[in-house]
Structures are given as structure tokens and as C-alpha cells.
């Protein structure tokens, strides 16, 4: 009976199901992805900002004269981890609530100054599990070398959102790889991720115009997750190309949704302008009429 009312209404449920059926293979690790998505939503970032001011690591280290000790705080302030409420203690341990130096740096509470480079991927993998699972058997993680590890490419304190330009950091790749390979790699990443970023930008713009974009965002997230889960940290070009090829089958459909939503925005604005025009003309005619009224 629920078909008759909107009590059971979920936005775009039908199309969502159809899409997830098509990309069922991508959603195997959806639980992890859900966590990732939660971290990225504005709601998550809004609630997180409060906690920052009470972190004693931040409040003490920010004012230290030694730049090696204070710069990490400034860098972290700009990072993607700050709005996600991932702070010092999540990698360095210790007690972020204590004002006493010894307590704050308590080894009993797993405080560690410099984490072991060979376990860095495990620290990051606590949240970024899929990436870790792909990275460990990849050429970069092979035989326990873990070179380069997570922070070599993504930075340690100023962790930024993943993007293609990370690959082009010359120090990190040039030592072992030829420029040609790097160019192929960058081009592939652009092919895989750039459309998704484009969809998201378009969706934000459309959303601010009042037209629902949940379906577009869900599809874009699915595609992005598929890329992150199956391509981003595999580091084998052939495997990655196959993933990107299959993603490019999905992109035209998302593009169609974007176009439909854009048309809806335009239709609404045209309709509104018709009213505005009518009101203004009507006001003008009334004004003229009023002036033409007899003087008494």
C-alpha cells in the first residue's frame, strides 16, 4: 500500500536501486565507504570544529618557539583531517586532554614521537582500510618495503584530499619512475576522477538553485568509491585502466541526470521571470493609469 502515499518515499529510490544493481561489483566494501562518506559530509565537519579548541596538543604546540614542534600544528590546521576531527593523538597517541607535559606525552597511553615508517600504512589503514588493502600487495608495498608509504605522497600533517596532482610530486616518483609512465598514470587518474569532480561541482551548483541532486551525488559517490576501492592504490596500470574503462560506461548516464537537473533549474527561472515580468508590467500600467486619473 505504501506506493499510494509518500510515507515510504525515498528520494530517487527506483533509479538508485537500478544503478546499484549495475555497479554491484563496486559496492562490496560499502560499509567502509559509508564511513568515508560520513567523514566527508559537511555535517561531520560542522560538529567537529568544537572539539578542536579543547585539544591540549594543539593549544600547547601552536605556541612553541621551536618551529619543528609548532609547524605541524599549523600544517594540520590546513589539512583535511582537521574538519574530520582526526587530530594529533590519533597517530601520536598520548593524552590530548591533559595540560601536564608528562601526562600529555604518556608512553603508557601509546605516545610515540615519530611513528615507525613501516607501520604508517597500518595507522592510516585504520580508517582508509580499502586503500591499505590495495597498497600492501601493490608494487609499492611489495615484500614489506612500503616505499613510498602513505605520508611520502599524501604528507603527514598537511594531509590533503586525494587528487591527481599528488602523483606529480617530483621528489616522490622520479627517483624510480620514468616520466612517460608518470604521464600515463596522471592521464588515467584524470580520466577516472575528473568527471566525478565535475559532477559534484555541478550538483552543488544545482542544489543551491533548489533542485534535488541526491541521485547525482549518490551516483558520483559510487563511481568515486569504485575508483578509490579498485584503482587508486593498486599501482598497476593495466588493472587501473580496466576499472576506468568500466567507469566510463557509467559517466554518460550521470551526465544525463546532471543535464536534466540543469534544465529543471532553467525552467524554474524562466517561469519565475515570467511572473516578475508580468508584475513589473502590471505595476507600470497601474502607475500610468494613476497618473491619468482626473485631478480631483
Amino acid at each position: 500500500m505504501s506506493e499510494l502515499t509518500h510515507a515510504g518515499y525515498r528520494p530517487g529510490a527506483g533509479a538508485w536501486n537500478a544503478l546499484s544493481a549495475r555497479t554491484a561489483e563496486y559496492t562490496a566494501r560499502s560499509a567502509v565507504i559509508l564511513l568515508l562518506l560520513l567523514v566527508w559530509t559537511p555535517a561531520g565537519s560542522a560538529t567537529a570544529q568544537q572539539a578542536v579548541t579543547t585539544n591540549t596538543c594543539v593549544s600547547c604546540h601552536a605556541d612553541l618557539d621551536d618551529e619543528d614542534m609548532s609547524l605541524p600544528v599549523a600544517e594540520w590546521q590546513r589539512s583535511a583531517h582537521r574538519p574530520a576531527d582526526i587530530a594529533c593523538q590519533d597517530c601520536h597517541g598520548g593524552n590530548p586532554a591533559s595540560m601536564v607535559e608528562d601526562e600529555a606525552h604518556d608512553v603508557e597511553r601509546d605516545f610515540v614521537g615519530l611513528p615507525d615508517p613501516y607501520v604508517v600504512h597500518e595507522l592510516c589503514g585504520e580508517c582508509h582500510q580499502v586503500q591499505m588493502e590495495n597498497y600492501v600487495p601493490s608494487p609499492h608495498g611489495l615484500e614489506g618495503d612500503f616505499w613510498p608509504n602513505c605520508v611520502d605522497c599524501h604528507e603527514n600533517h598537511e594531509v590533503v584530499f586525494p587528487r591527481a596532482s599528488l602523483i606529480s610530486i617530483p621528489d616522490n616518483c622520479e627517483d624510480c619512475h620514468e616520466q612517460e609512465i608518470m604521464d600515463d598514470f596522471i592521464a588515467l587518474t584524470d580520466r577516472g576522477l575528473e568527471p566525478v569532480n565535475e559532477f559534484r561541482r555541478a550538483a552543488e551548483e544545482i542544489r543551491s538553485a533548489g533542485v534535488p541532486v541526491d541521485l547525482i551525488l549518490a551516483q558520483a559517490s559510487l563511481a568515486r568509491d569504485a575508483y578509490i576501492q579498485q584503482a587508486s592504490h593498486v599501482f598497476v596500470l593495466d588493472k587501473m585502466t580496466a576499472v576506468v574503462d568500466s567507469l566510463e560506461q557509467v559517466y554518460p548516464r550521470i551526465q544525463k541526470e546532471v543535464n536534466t537537473a540543469r534544465t529543471e533549474v532553467d525552467t524554474r527561472r524562466r517561469f519565475g521571470w515570467m511572473f516578475i515580468g508580468l508584475f513589473l508590467v502590471l505595476a507600470g500600467v497601474i502607475w500610468l493609469y494613476r497618473r491619468a486619473l482626473p485631478e480631483d
Binding site: L278, V281, L282, V285, I286, L288, Y289, A292
Partner: peptide, 8 residues
């Protein structure tokens, strides 16, 4: 003008 008003 009254006709205009009526029409509009």
C-alpha cells in the same frame, strides 16, 4: 489602460 489592466 483599463483594458490593458484587465488583460494583464
Amino acid at each position: 489602460l483599463r483594458k490593458c489592466l484587465g488583460a494583464l
